[in-house]
Simulated assay, not measured.
Amino acid sequence: MRRIHLTTVIARTLAAATVLTVTAACGAQSDKASGAPAADQKPAAAAPSSQTTSPTADTANDNRPNGVSGAEAAPAGSTTAARPAPKILMAAGTQGAQVKELQARLAQVGWFDDTPTGTYGSVTSAAVKGFQSKRGLPTTGSADTATWQRLAAMTTKPTPQELAGQAVNKPKTKLDKRCMTGRVLCISKTTRTLNWVVNGKVQSSMDVRFGSQYTPTREGTFKVFLKSRNHVSSIYHTPMPYAMFFSGGQAVHYSSDFAKRGYAGASHGCVNVRDKAKLAKLFDQVRVNDKVVVYW
């Protein structure tokens, strides 16, 4: 009888010890963006160091250069040596005509808003970093051979007017086919341009910027479901004038931060416009249920 009693006690103890509770929660992020920059925001939980980050749409569409970072070692047992890091052509403190050309070319793709000076300072470093990050290049802020080759392939040789800061030869936006019928806010992430298109004809264009990698602006086809002339973000408590909402809390709206700092900042997911007068005019023309297309 004693042996049976001990066996029963052990079995009950083991059963009580094998209790496992798993809790998971997932929900859509509220993306009511403000003009405040989101570049320094961090995700709620950092990914494990062994996890590979998925490429952004911009990275996926680019033809990456063959050069890789010198830190990328060849696999174990491989007879192929790691390729050397790209040669640095320009970095903080560099001066000269090539720096001025770099600045003018960055202006063509919307990454440099100042007059080219020929001096590689903090503004130029930030512009190069942004360009590198969007294209899957090592984000160093220095213009190496891989960065220069990618930028040169996307731009044209600057004119004297561009080098003097009097003009910017931005690449022409290729309208998505979804923008060719009806009334459409046609928004290109490649050229960072918003075109107001009616029946296939561009009525007006303006510069825009988008969310950071942590709060990306959604891509796809949407409709304007709410207009709010003097909107204030309920999350960030910042003004969002001339807001036209198209996806949850994401909207096209004026950003004083974009007007002041250019592409050095980012939104929390909204489409920021820096020309207030142009957007005010557009706001009066756009109707609820007009189409919005966000694409690369």
Results as ranks from 00 to 15, higher is better:
residue 191 T to K: 07
residue 183 R to A: 08
residue 202 V to C: 03
residue 209 R to P: 01
residue 291 K to E: 11
residue 291 K to D: 09
residue 182 G to R: 03
residue 239 P to F: 01
residue 236 Y to H: 06
residue 177 K to Q: 15
residue 240 M to K: 11
residue 223 K to F: 01
residue 241 P to L: 14
residue 177 K to N: 09
residue 269 G to C: 10
residue 181 T to Y: 01
residue 189 K to D: 05
residue 243 A to K: 05
residue 230 N to M: 06
residue 225 F to K: 03
residue 167 A to S: 12
residue 221 T to F: 05
residue 288 V to E: 15
residue 280 A to V: 02
residue 250 Q to I: 02
residue 227 K to V: 15
residue 181 T to L: 08
residue 290 D to A: 10
residue 172 K to M: 06
residue 264 A to F: 01
residue 255 S to T: 01
residue 208 V to D: 01
residue 269 G to I: 06
residue 240 M to E: 14
residue 287 R to I: 00
residue 216 P to V: 14
residue 264 A to S: 14
residue 250 Q to V: 05
residue 220 G to P: 09
residue 232 V to R: 12
residue 223 K to T: 15
residue 214 Y to R: 03
residue 203 Q to S: 11
residue 251 A to C: 08
residue 207 D to E: 14
residue 244 M to S: 05
residue 216 P to H: 10
residue 172 K to W: 00
residue 203 Q to T: 08
residue 189 K to T: 08
residue 226 L to H: 12
residue 237 H to D: 05
residue 167 A to W: 07
residue 288 V to W: 05
residue 188 S to P: 01
residue 278 K to Q: 15
residue 181 T to S: 15
residue 259 A to L: 05
residue 261 R to K: 12
residue 244 M to I: 08
residue 201 K to D: 07
residue 199 N to G: 10
residue 268 H to V: 04
residue 248 G to E: 04
residue 243 A to Y: 06
residue 288 V to M: 11
residue 247 S to V: 13
residue 184 V to P: 09
residue 269 G to M: 13
residue 282 L to E: 07
residue 250 Q to W: 02
residue 169 N to F: 05
residue 186 C to G: 03
residue 280 A to T: 00
residue 167 A to M: 05
residue 270 C to M: 02
residue 263 Y to A: 07
residue 176 D to K: 01
residue 213 Q to T: 03
residue 268 H to M: 03
residue 187 I to V: 15
residue 189 K to H: 10
residue 287 R to W: 07
residue 185 L to M: 14
residue 188 S to G: 04
residue 196 W to K: 02
residue 244 M to E: 12
residue 246 F to P: 02
residue 184 V to A: 09
residue 230 N to F: 04
residue 245 F to Q: 08
residue 256 S to E: 13
residue 273 V to M: 04
residue 263 Y to P: 00
residue 201 K to I: 14
residue 290 D to N: 09
residue 278 K to Y: 04
residue 207 D to R: 12
residue 192 R to K: 11
residue 254 Y to N: 02
residue 261 R to Y: 12
residue 187 I to N: 07
residue 254 Y to A: 09
residue 226 L to Q: 13
residue 255 S to H: 00
residue 209 R to G: 03
residue 218 R to N: 11
residue 237 H to E: 02
residue 278 K to N: 09
residue 168 V to H: 10
residue 264 A to K: 11
residue 283 F to M: 13
residue 172 K to S: 13
residue 291 K to G: 04
residue 253 H to D: 08
residue 266 A to E: 04
residue 176 D to Y: 10
residue 184 V to G: 09
residue 243 A to V: 06
residue 239 P to R: 09
residue 252 V to K: 00
residue 202 V to W: 03
residue 228 S to T: 06
residue 201 K to C: 00
residue 196 W to Q: 03
residue 271 V to I: 15
residue 272 N to L: 12
residue 196 W to H: 12
residue 222 F to D: 05
residue 231 H to G: 00
residue 267 S to T: 10
residue 252 V to C: 01
residue 254 Y to R: 06
